[in-house]
Design a binder for these strands. Structure first.
Lengths: 205, 205, 205, 205
DNA sequence: TATGAATGAGTGTTCATTCAT
DNA sequence: TATGAATGAACACTCATTCAT
């Protein structure tokens, strides 16, 4: 009844964990966080309601896990995309454009992160954003590097710049997700923001 | 602010609307939107629970009214602050710095708008942002003007730029509101963002 | 400020009392007792909500007044209709047929009495049915008279017979009111019941 | 009254449905439908409030189930009581007398059906009376049979007669239930009504 | 691990009624 | 008498979470 991996059990578990997360993205995107019922997620995942609590502490925990798992994947993707680049400006542009493209590829996820995540009180007020910080760290690093190389202006705080860039991206993805007929494509958004921040950060003689 | 009829009399009416809003800001900021009870707001405002429903359609409607009223006031303030300025770059800097300062002056309101507003499903998904659009319009106008005067680059969409600026401001205010000990002051945030976007938008020969 | 009888005013009062009752029949029949709002009745009657409480103790009181007033009118009508008749059997037939016809003429009233009246707890459990008893009395009298004249059987209690007749009439009117397409007309109902009870009560040699 | 593990296992399921119904009869009869709280019924039944909603759609649904279940039982009883009889007149008498006796044996139920049932809007206006129709059907059958055998008059509609009989019974039981000191016993009521309708329906040469 | 029946805390909103004018 | 703004009690129902199997 339990399949194994090498010697023993476990894969089932892993499998269910993922099935639940996948079901949650679908349900959250469709009904919103507050309107989603645990029983709906359980049904979609093909498990019993109670089973969910073997894998997650509570409803908010599903959301947070979802977020972290996706951030994790994103971090990989971004590191890969940035891997070969040397020029901080190129890195910055790539980061921004990749982010916008990434969100287009994962629309449901984009909606959950932009809209639903904010609806979880636990997330907004209790969540210690380790993974998210790590993600923002990529931006910090790029900026710091640019400053060190003298490519970026010295008078701007990386801590402020990284949040500014993320906030801009987030707001525009939110707009793109919620607008019935968005006026701009994610490509256009990515390019415009890349231009804006590249120039904004560039050091001038 | 309170109109009368004759000498004093009926101070109530208009007054209650405001008392309820003021109470709501306080309660929402303290407990969060979802954890705030209508009865708490009523008590804080010194009215009966049912009275609230003479002035607002429902709980979400309080939040939305709150938002609109404050946006309205903000629009006035911004127009005043920007009134005499000619240079688009100066206008942009002023806008950003004023926004940051404004939020510092109205901390509870800042928290409600940055954190709680997102928790209202009705707000996020049904609200037609007339007032908010009007507010963002101020930014559009500055940018469009700058483009027309040749001060700002032509290759950036005002619709994207205005949201980028707002998103950056919002994200940083959110950080400032939620961080137990923010590393940056609103002044510093304002100045950095002003520099960043001014340079980012500036037309280069 | 207070008008009196004789010299002046007052009709207003009387007038309002009636306007409110008339409005209530309409509203109760349309929405049912529990779903009818005092404010709706007030609006329909063209008075302020509070005014209603100058004429009636409470919502149930409107219903009870309604009932009593109509019963009163009915008693008049029935006495008139029965006035010239001598034969108890003729009287009984006339009573039954008149009742059915009366309800057809006042459909909204029929519905209120048959359906809504039962929904008032105060009516069912606290109402002392003076007027209603008076109405049923007409039936008692007919039966007693018939017994005295030897036309009706002696072994039947008038108290039981009167309720049986009223119960039968009430149930059939209820059916006629609620059925989307009643199979029987009030005329047919009246005739059948008249036959049924006339024969049922008739003394046999 | 509470079963344990060991002997039975899952004593619950079916059991709870019944415990809730039994509790509801008690509470409804005591306080009336509208004044009865779900929490009272839950307490009386020894279950949690929410549990009730695992077995019933809503408060009205409890009442309707109650009604149907009892009607069902009554149909059995009546069929048994009528089983051996051949003479339609005997059947009719038996039906009426049994009904009156039945209500005396189940006083609380009688009160709920006569008084409270009418207070449920859903019952009065939305309930599709399948079971009840089935019950009245017993009466129709008796009357139709009597007509076919030439024992009952041909000029009376069974559809009217059955409702007349039920209406008379219902009204008298209502009287008997609500009157502080009823003047007539259920036995007397049964006998009088039986006489009344038997004679009323009998065919005359 | 998995189940799913049972739990019970939690609250926005309505509306009959009052009362200051 | 007439008003209508203000009151505040009242409650069914949901659903995240638990726990006995």
């Amino acid at each position: 009844m339990l399949e194994k991996r090498g010697g023993a059990k476990r894969p089932v578990a892993k499998d269910k964990h993922e099935r639940i997360l996948k079901a949650a993205v679908k349900i959250f995107a469709k009904h919103g966080f507050h309107n989603s019922k645990i029983s709906q997620i359980a049904k979609e995942a093909g498990v019993a309601d109670g089973t969910i609590y073997l894998y997650f502490k509570n409803k908010d925990d599903i959301l947070i896990n979802l977020f972290e798992k996706k951030i994790d994947a994103a971090i990989q993707d971004f590191n890969t995309a940035l891997g070969d680049l040397r020029d901080p400006i190129e890195k910055l542009r790539t980061f921004i454009v990749t982010y916008a493209g990434y969100m287009e590829k994962h629309q449901a996820l984009a909606e959950v992160i932009s809209v639903e995540l904010r609806q979880s009180n636990k997330f907004m007020k209790e969540y210690v954003p380790v993974k998210f910080a790590e993600f923002l760290q990529i931006l910090s690093m790029i900026i710091r590097e640019g400053k060190d190389l003298g490519v970026f202006r010295r008078d701007i705080e990386p801590g402020i710049a990284k949040r500014a860039i993320f906030g801009a991206l987030d707001e525009l993805i939110l707009y793109w997700v919620l607008a019935p007929k968005p006026k701009y494509s994610t490509t256009q958004i990515g390019r415009n923001l890349a231009d804006l921040f590249a120039e904004g950060l560039k050091a001038r003689p």
